[in-house]
Design a protein around this nucleic acid. Structure first.
Length: 464
DNA sequence: AATTGAGCCAACCGCGGTGTA
DNA sequence: CTACACCGCGGTTGGCTCAAT
């Protein structure tokens, strides 16, 4: 930290709070002085973190709450790790970015002592450097799971698999051309994996609503068959409900993630009226609330759970499920490679767990404030990860009617694990911690074999 | 010695979610 | 139910340092 490197930062040295209200004072901006740091530290020491706007009121600091929070979290809070990233940390950042994209807070939660700002800065400089060098963002052995690389506009393998049936063949006639469905002048085109990315992938307003005719019935929606990598499922979704986080292909600095929106039948009469259930919008923001616990209602949190569930599950069943589909295309998903890279032996649970658990073990309360035990008794079972994760997935409510590919045994027709996440599951998590209750399942789910487990949220591996 | 550009870093801004009166 | 305040995240900006030219 080099405070006071310049007398004033940015354009102004002071401003008023945006929210006005109780903060009508002129707020100082720019670099923090040692005196301000001392004031803030003293305040936090006495009053604890939070209620940042009260800092200004009670401490005499002429800083807005936001500024205080930022200063504290990025520079003053204990257990902060200073200095350059270690090689391990760098590798982890790459892997996490491949998995999460620009979810700095989420990444930071996996890197004890590091802040999202640090990681973001590191990544951005690394990104620039690699782009300038014409290098891919990720090492060749790491394929981003949720994004395409911006160096070119060709779909990344993961994107291809994302929009391609799990058996390597599109299950619908126009799985890519349907991206242009919103341009009525664009006729359906034949599928080509080399086709440039659909325009809406870079559309900053990617949320679409189903078209309706005069009678209110949904117009026919082309379906997007995609290999839902996040959830380890293949599913068929009307393309209008599959949205993608904004991708800034121009700068390449915005490594947007495809975000999955599932469908929740809003009415059952027509079977065609849906509402957007989850999760891209919430995902853009909510992952940061991971730090704060389940009570925040966090679709991103569930996504985290699913992410980790899938990763762990695949660690257990690397030769089954989703992986086959990817390998059938001659592709290895990055997380599979990660398992290989880290453990050297795909399927060795201990190695993967070492990767996945390590951050939890080291997590400071800031990083694990969710309150879920980071070690769970079930982990001592003979096959704990698989059991817990499948049980978790079993317990996810599925108000959606089961798609036709679902064979009723928790597998889709390709044998993939099938867990369709719906919006409310992502929005809930309001159960009081730490006693997370099992999520109610719908009768049709209960009728299936999805609920033969009794694993609850609390049985999950540690969630930061 | 001066200039330039990359790298690094700190901080601000806007936005959206959440809590509460 | 609504408005407001608070909070946190991701994006962005801009200053400083340092090495190369």
């Amino acid at each position: 930290m080099a405070p006071d490197r310049s007398p004033s930062r940015k354009s102004s040295a002071a401003s008023t709070s945006r929210s006005g209200g109780s903060l009508r004072h002129i707020m100082k901006k720019g670099p923090w002085t040692a005196n301000e740091d001392a004031l803030l530290m003293e305040y936090v020491r006495k009053n604890g973190e939070g209620n940042w706007n009260a800092v200004q009121r009670n401490s005499g600091l002429m800083r807005c709450g936001k500024s205080c929070r930022l200063r504290w979290s990025n520079h003053l809070r204990p257990n902060l790790k200073k200095g350059a990233f270690t090689q391990d940390e760098e590798a982890l950042i790459v892997n996490l970015h491949a998995k999460f994209g620009n979810k700095w807070a989420r990444m930071a939660s996996q890197l004890p002592g590091r802040t999202d700002n640090e990681i973001k800065n590191y990544w951005n400089t690394r990104l620039k450097r690699r782009q300038r060098a014409g290098l891919p963002l990720y090492p060749v052995d790491i394929q981003p799971l949720n994004q395409y690389q911006p160096q070119n506009l060709q779909p990344s393998p993961s994107l291809v698999s994302f929009i391609t049936a799990v058996d390597g063949k599109p299950k619908h006639s126009t799985p890519i051309s349907i991206f242009d469905m919103f341009n009525p002048t664009t006729p359906p085109a034949s599928t080509s994996q080399n086709q440039p990315l659909p325009s809406f992938l870079s559309d900053p307003s990617p949320n679409f609503k189903p078209a309706h005719n005069k009678n209110g019935a949904s117009l026919p929606m082309p379906s997007l068959q995609f290999n839902c990598l996040n959830f380890g499922i293949a599913n068929t979704v009307p393309v209008s409900h599959a949205s993608f986080a904004q991708n800034d292909t121009g700068s390449g600095s915005n490594m947007g993630l495809p975000a999955i929106q599932s469908l929740v039948p809003e009415t059952t009469s027509s079977g065609s009226d849906y509402m957007i259930a989850t999760s891209s919008d919430a995902d853009d923001r909510d992952e940061g609330h991971d730090h704060q616990g389940l009570s925040h209602g966090n679709s991103g949190l569930l996504e985290d759970v699913i992410d980790e569930s899938q990763a762990l599950t695949r660690a257990e069943k690397p030769k089954e499920t989703c992986l086959n589909a990817e390998k059938s295309q001659g592709e290895f998903l990055w997380d599979y490679k990660l398992m290989e890279d880290v453990g050297g032996n795909v399927g060795e649970e201990s190695d993967l767990n070492a990767i996945l658990d390590e951050p939890y073990k080291d997590s400071t309360p800031t990083h694990s404030s969710i309150g879920v035990e980071t070690t769970n008794a079930s982990s001592q079972k003979s096959n704990p990860v698989e059991d817990d994760l499948f049980n978790l997935l079993d317990d996810i409510p599925l108000p959606v009617t089961m798609p036709d590919w679902y064979d009723g045994n928790g597998n889709d027709i390709d044998g993939q694990c099938s867990n369709w996440i719906e919006g409310d599951a992502g929005k809930e998590n309001h159960q009081p911690e730490p006693s997370y209750s099992p999520v109610a399942t719908t009768p049709e789910i209960t009728d299936n074999n999805w609920t033969d487990g009794a694993s609850y949220w609390k049985n999950l591996p540690g969630i930061y």
